[in-house]
Design a protein around this nucleic acid. Structure first.
Lengths: 260, 260
DNA sequence: CGTTGTGTTGAGCCGAATCAACCCCGGTGG
DNA sequence: CCACCGGGGTTGATTCGGCTCAACACAACG
């Protein structure tokens, strides 16, 4: 949140969105073109800006094409819990349920660029775009999974495991979005953000990261993380990537309203 | 899990389901009758039985009319995290997303009686049952909220707060289902279940409960919990009931695929 | 050049886990 | 009828992971 917000002149490519959706379901030419056509209706946000204030009606759903955001809740006494990080390729604002009182807020962690996703959502029930519909449903399912994974981290894992596990998850998600490779990826987060996501104190996040560095499992330099030994890391974190999320059968898709 | 499973002869009334849905959206006569007509297709489970084993394709969605269940994940090393408790009036099995590999399992905590919910789900997109559709959507939204509330407990609250907060939530949910009153409610859980839900050790749950009893905030006797001073309890737990979940606008309902 | 935000480090404390008994109770079977 | 058994609850002693408080380093920025 330091650092001036310097608006980028050129628009970011929409590739992260396409890549993510393709990773969930193969998209035929026509449907991929459809997604690319969403590139209009861009919107940008400065770091720290609230995209969806808690308690406000939701905005139209959007895809993130560049930058990071967080879905969080802030308690009256200042504590906050980050529920999930929103990365390039991810979407947010998909439900206006709880019209006035949204039970969470979404805030930009870095400079952020988004495109409108309403059309993609309409495609879910549109029979002319079956693959896209599948992909969107699978994306929702995957998101649910990530939420539960996060809950397991918070409830069952030690600080050491949490940090390692979280880094592995980020690497994987960013990789499908086309950011980073098998061990290197951008990590534009302060340790405070990590702390609020993982339910730890800043100081302890710091020490944990140091331990991981000392053990030569990771490396952190200027917003870039490197997993030096991803396999070892996955071992100690009990990380199981889990098979790619499968899309629900089309017949049931319309029934997915959330939940177990 | 001790005690023999003694099947009940008479069927439990479906009221908890009706009451819960009505609490979300007023149901016209006809639609309430429709819900009551679901009473056929009953299924019963013994305590400990797995309703949805992890990794298996999901069963048809069901409403619980009596008994408690848990939605959980068990880690390879034996640790487990309970994501949510499923109470009378609640539903489960709503998504078969991730067809083969379900990322969680559902297990009966007590003797359980359920009815088929497929028809109610079909009603969501059926224009002849608008109120029921709203109610089901609101139920899904509420469930999402409870999940996030639980995440805040795990990530931000102390053991003392967690237990108090959780008890208040249970009281509230059971109350709308018609079980218990403003301070008394059935609590057929072992301390081990509580521990796995709240991310604490059994011993510490025990001590925390004892402290709450010593402070005359709660009372526990043979499967029944009494909140002696609900207001004080809500204070210390930072519990804010939150206004009743509002149903999303019908126009957007079909778009709700989960998520933020 | 001060300021502010972020990362780093040390000292000390405390909440919660662990380990290990023990009790109580209902059920079971000799 | 009683002895045994197992599950759940309770308790104490001890350890330890993680928090708090506090100070300092460093860089970017105004």
């Amino acid at each position: 949140m330091t650092g001036r917000f310097r608006p980028r002149l050129a628009a970011w490519p929409i590739d992260p969105v396409v890549r993510k959706l393709r990773s969930l379901t193969p998209l035929p030419e026509a449907e991929e073109a459809f997604v690319r056509s969403l590139s209009e209706r861009r919107e940008r946000f400065a770091p720290g800006e609230e995209l969806i204030p808690e308690g406000q009606p939701a905005r139209r759903p959007r895809f993130v094409v560049a930058g990071w955001a967080a879905c969080q809740r802030v308690l009256p006494d200042g504590r906050r819990q980050i529920f999930r990080l929103i990365l390039p390729g991810d979407h947010f604002g998909f439900c206006d349920r709880a019209a006035p009182p949204s039970p969470w807020s979404v805030v930009a962690l870095t400079a952020l660029e988004t495109v409108d996703a309403e059309a993609a959502l309409d495609a879910v029930l549109d029979e002319r775009t079956p693959a896209l519909g599948q992909a969107m449903a699978a994306a929702a399912a995957q998101e649910q999974q990530l939420l539960l994974d996060h809950m397991v981290r918070l409830g069952q894992q030690t600080a050491y495991e949490r940090v390692a596990h979280f880094l592995l998850e980020l690497q994987r998600r960013l990789h499908v979005a086309g950011l980073g490779d098998n061990q290197r990826f951008p990590l534009p987060l302060t340790q405070e953000i990590l702390a609020d996501a993982l339910g730890l104190s800043i100081v302890h996040v710091n020490r944990t990261l140091q331990q991981l560095r000392k053990e030569r499992l990771i490396e952190l330099r200027s917003g870039v993380a490197i997993l030096l030994q991803p396999d070892v890391l996955a071992e100690v974190a009990h990380y199981e990537p889990g098979p790619a999320v499968r899309a629900p059968s089309p017949a049931r898709r319309q029934l997915e309203k959330t939940s177990a």
